[in-house]
Amino acid sequence: MKIAVCVKEIYNLEQVKIVRETREPILDVPKKLDDLSRNALEEAIKIREKLGGEIVAISAGSPELRKTIKEALAMGADRAAIVTDFTESSPESAALVLSRILEKDSYDLILLGDASSDDYSGQMASRVAETLNLPQITFVSEIREVSDGKITCVRDMDDYIEVVESDLPCVVSVTNEINEPRIPALKDILKASKKPVENFSLQDLGIEISRSYEIVENLAPAVDRKQEVIEGEAAEVAGKIAEIIGREV
């Protein structure tokens, strides 16, 4: 089984601070592999444990991706194919880049997260599948069975649960609950730097990115919490909380 996992690097959101006066985010923080990408990767590793085969991590991002992609290799991807001069992040341009990388090889299964924890746009599975002319199974909370040429999945939709099957190759997007991604051990992290990484430029792939929309503003909502810290004995603290509740309702 040859599996591609599309992964995304995102800002470490916990570290993103907001400028108090302007409400603008400060994006001068390190990047990391997105949570949902880890879920997709974990699912791929489980399939490889059962059926054997190869896992290729595919990604488009900034030059920092050369470092971030090691997280995917440490988790268990066998190799990676990445573009590191991709700074425009619209879903359509990301899908184009990922599809071009995917086209360079042939895969039985393409896995990704059902959305990313930063943009939460949820378009990548559909766009990649449409571009590659493949069937898709989105919002998968359980992969029931994968065999030669066929996959059966449980989909967790808004109002219903669905069991569906598809022929392979197929694009599958997974939910955050599908598994608990493994944390790489030190030896896996050390091994990761020896794994092969193919690094393409947009030019190598013959892609020119054009912007299809304009960001008019990107600001944090103006909520200013008092952030008053209360500590002490349970009984005393409970009294204070009751007092606040009494004032507020």
């Binding site: 949820g122 559909s126 449409e130």
Partner: peptide
């Protein structure tokens, strides 16, 4: 912008080579 809505809107947008903004 339900799960089905996001799935279909982006597949359709890709077919038409259009921008799609969800959520």
């Amino acid at each position: 912008s339900t799960k089905l809505g996001k799935e279909v809107s982006s597949r359709f947008a890709q077919r038409k080579n259009m921008t799609c903004i969800t959520e």
